[in-house]
Simulated assay, not measured.
Amino acid sequence: MASKQMKQMVHMNQGQGETSYARNSSIQTAEQKRMQPLIEAVIAELCSSTSTLVPGKMVIADMGCSTGPNAVTLVSIAVKAVQDHCFQVQRPPPEVCLLLNDLPNNNFNTVVKSLVMLRQSNEHVVVTGITPGSFYERLYTSDSLHLVCSSNSLHWLSKAPEDLFRNLIPAYDMDKDAKCQRHRMVLEAYAKQFRKDFTNFLELRAKELVSKGRMVVSLVGRRSDVTATKFSYLSRTIYQILSVMVLEGVNDKEKFDSFYVPVYEPSNKEVREIIQEEGSFSIREMQVHDPTTDMNNALSTPSKFVNLLRALCEPILVQHFGDVMCEFRALQSVTGAWRATC
């Protein structure tokens, strides 16, 4: 699964249907709300620094905005924070430019409409824009951004781990013994790819941010005291369903062996180490929280969980396996049955 292919495939399910991202993104919305006080604090710092905001403008970019009702949430929080801070200190707000980024196949139609409404309701938002492309590439000119936000995006890799697809090593062996023998190798390959991608992301954003610019990012991960002995729940559930489909003759085993879910959940220790080793940024604050409550509320039934899986991964699955989503949904009952461990 080459990088160019990944750019085309990784996008959320579009539209407003039962399995659309728009109707299955409450977990992501909850995470964005947690980011609000962090964004507000950063905005206050930026607005208080006259050297950073010369000549009275602020450029804010959300990388991995996706689509649906929460596509403009982070930039909306930032705009309101600018207005509230400037009102408190009795200073005219800066002109604000809002830029939203996601991969080219993202459904930007609803995003554009939301941006237009946001701009019309805020007189100090003078420019809005869409930047299609991977945030693992350069997107903006040097020294042009004041604030970069990203929520629920950076655990998505740029491509499958090179060590796996180059050597034709399945991410998830159906044979239990082979799976246990290769499991550590597979997880290390995913960790290596994340380190490469996240380092690249930091290097690129360092070039695009102004001096003393800020980033507020959130991604799905794990606590450092939780050993990486398994795939993420999302990944292993998908592999579990797909393996049953192979056994039932719905899926081809060769395609199954060459399929890689491009997701890695790093520990907070990994994230901290990569940031420190890359060296462009200092960590002002790092928070770790347990999303169990959000997940329990959003995924209270097997059908809701499968709808989430389809909202996030259906485009990837269809691209690789063809039109197998009816069978995928029919096997939703197995999502709670997997107990194998290595």
Rank of each mutant, 00 (worst) to 15 (best):
A2C: 14
N13M: 09
Q14E: 13
Q16H: 14
R23S: 10
I27Y: 02
Q32M: 14
M35E: 04
P37W: 04
L38H: 10
I39L: 04
E40L: 06
V42H: 00
I43L: 02
I43V: 09
A44T: 07
S51R: 09
T52F: 02
L53E: 03
V59D: 03
A61T: 00
S66A: 09
P69V: 00
N70K: 03
N70Y: 03
V75D: 02
I77P: 00
K80P: 06
C86M: 06
F87S: 13
V89P: 08
P92Y: 06
L99R: 01
D102A: 01
L103Y: 06
P104K: 05
N105W: 05
N106A: 04
N107E: 12
S114G: 08
S114T: 03
L115E: 04
L115Y: 02
L118N: 05
L118G: 05
R119E: 12
R119M: 13
S121A: 14
V126Q: 15
T131V: 11
G133E: 06
Y136E: 01
Y136I: 00
R138Q: 13
R138W: 10
T141F: 15
D143G: 07
S144P: 02
V148S: 02
C149K: 00
L154G: 00
H155G: 01
A160D: 02
P161L: 03
E162D: 11
L164I: 06
N167Y: 12
I169C: 05
I169N: 04
M174I: 14
A178Y: 13
A178M: 13
H183G: 09
H183W: 10
M185Y: 15
E188D: 14
A189V: 01
Y190A: 03
R195N: 12
N200G: 11
L202Y: 06
L202T: 02
L202K: 05
E203Q: 14
A206R: 06
K212S: 12
M215G: 01
R222P: 07
R223A: 15
R223Q: 14
S224R: 14
F231D: 07
S232R: 02
L234W: 10
T237H: 03
Y239D: 04
Q240F: 15
L242H: 02
S243V: 08
E248W: 07
E248D: 13
F256G: 00
S258N: 10
F259T: 00
P266C: 01
S267L: 05
S267T: 10
E270S: 11
V271Y: 04
V271P: 02
E273T: 07
I274F: 10
I274L: 08
Q276Y: 12
E277M: 11
E277L: 12
R284P: 11
T292N: 12
N297A: 13
A298V: 05
L299W: 10
S300Q: 12
S303A: 15
F305Y: 14
N307T: 06
L309V: 11
L312F: 11
V318M: 07
F321I: 04
V324Y: 11
F328V: 04
R329C: 14
S333H: 14
V334H: 09
V334S: 10
G336R: 09
A340M: 15
C342I: 08
